[in-house]
């Protein structure tokens, strides 16, 4: 019984860690893939990247006829996992699902005069998987009914309206500062440890507004505890048809998405990239993947590599500008 128990435990752990080292044997000009593929998720389980990556991995597994294993390599707001991907062997056996924050980090490093952890050119885009604009959420007890009310009030008392974010230079911070810059207002930023705590801070009345993901905000909108004033997308959200976009109400240069994309290391051979692009194109059409994404209320927004590259370049430009406008946080 006793050695049995230890054995079972040992087997479980060995299975968990064995997939890492396996990916180190390099085959020469073999058909791809011949062994398990590892997908790095630089964020903890249960986050947007993780929830998109898991059904994707399941769909790819069937197409590539090899196990596709998710590895949550977390830390430093995703920098640890993204760095691991940047230096991974470019053989197509270490891939990554990352979020829009990938474009922000090198710029933040530059801001602090430290060597960048990775460069955007370290990655080859395979596909855009999902994109979701954030929405401006305020407490239903607040006096603001429209963005105009909000902005007018913020102009009256600069630096007094508080908003919470998922973290400094995180998605919720950058999005809100983009609006603040465009509207010429000053808001007070309270960083928290993630999207969940930021929403809690709003619900608890500790801050006045957030720029949050629509899928987690919708239940609270239905319950009447919060109100949505506007969205950051270029068109209205299907789930919130009455909510205008910030572009509609006059902030033409404000556009922000929490998107997830599929990446390979930059030096990955062309045939491997091609195989991955083809498999991903099929995977996003798979019924299981579609249902999984639907259930999470995360809209699939598939773009193949060339279009994704264009989308990414435009998005990165916007984000880098926003980070420069924010500058160093005191």
């Amino acid at each position: 019984m006793k050695p049995m128990r230890v054995l079972v435990g040992a087997a479980a752990i060995v299975c968990m860690v064995a997939v890492g080292p396996l990916a180190d044997i390099a085959p020469a000009a073999e058909p791809y893939p011949v062994r398990p593929v590892q997908v790095i998720v630089p964020f903890p389980p249960g986050g947007v990247a993780d929830l998109v990556a898991r059904p994707l991995a399941a769909a790819l597994e069937k197409l590539l006829k090899q196990p596709v294993v998710i590895v949550n390599k977390t830390g430093a707001g995703g920098a640890v996992g993204m760095q691991a991907q940047a230096v991974a062997k470019p053989d197509g056996y270490t891939l990554m699902v990352a979020l829009s924050s990938i474009s922000v980090m090198p710029e933040v490093d530059a801001l602090f005069n430290r060597p960048p952890v990775y460069k955007l050119s370290d990655f080859a885009p395979i596909a855009l998987l999902s994109s979701d604009p954030t929405v401006l959420v305020v407490s239903s007890k607040s006096p603001w009914k429209t963005v105009a009310d909000f902005v007018a009030d913020a102009k009256k008392r600069p630096g007094e309206i508080k908003y919470a974010s998922s973290g400094v230079y995180g998605t919720m911070h950058v999005a809100m500062e983009m609006l603040a810059h465009s509207a010429g207002i000053k808001l007070r930023h309270i960083p928290t440890g993630g999207g969940g705590p930021a929403l809690n801070a709003l619900l608890g009345g500790h801050v006045d507004a957030i720029s949050g993901g629509p899928n987690v905000s919708i239940p609270h909108i239905k319950a009447g505890t919060v109100r949505v004033l506007a969205g950051w997308g270029d068109k209205r959200l299907p789930a919130l048809p009455d909510v205008p976009t910030l572009k509609e109400v006059g902030y033409k240069d404000v556009e922000f998405y929490i998107w997830s994309g599929f990446f390979a290391p930059a030096a990955t051979p062309e045939p491997v990239i091609k195989a991955l692009r083809e498999a991903t194109a099929k995977a996003v059409q798979a019924p299981d993947f579609k249902t999984a994404m639907e259930k999470m209320a995360t809209p699939i927004d598939y773009l193949d590599a060339p279009d994704f590259k264009k989308f990414w370049d435009r998005d990165a430009e916007r984000l880098i500008k926003a980070v420069r406008n924010i500058g160093k946080v005191e």
Binding site: P45, G46, L199, N200, L203, A292, K295, A297
Partner: peptide, 30 residues
């Protein structure tokens, strides 16, 4: 807080929230 309001207060409740969302339920006040 997770079940009554749909707000996770730590990493583990956050994963449970994600699990519910994967199954098409977004816990909230209702």
């Amino acid at each position: 807080p997770l079940l009554a309001l749909g707000v996770p207060t730590g990493p583990v409740p956050a994963v449970l929230l994600a699990a519910l969302m994967v199954h098409g339920i977004t816990p909230g006040p209702l």
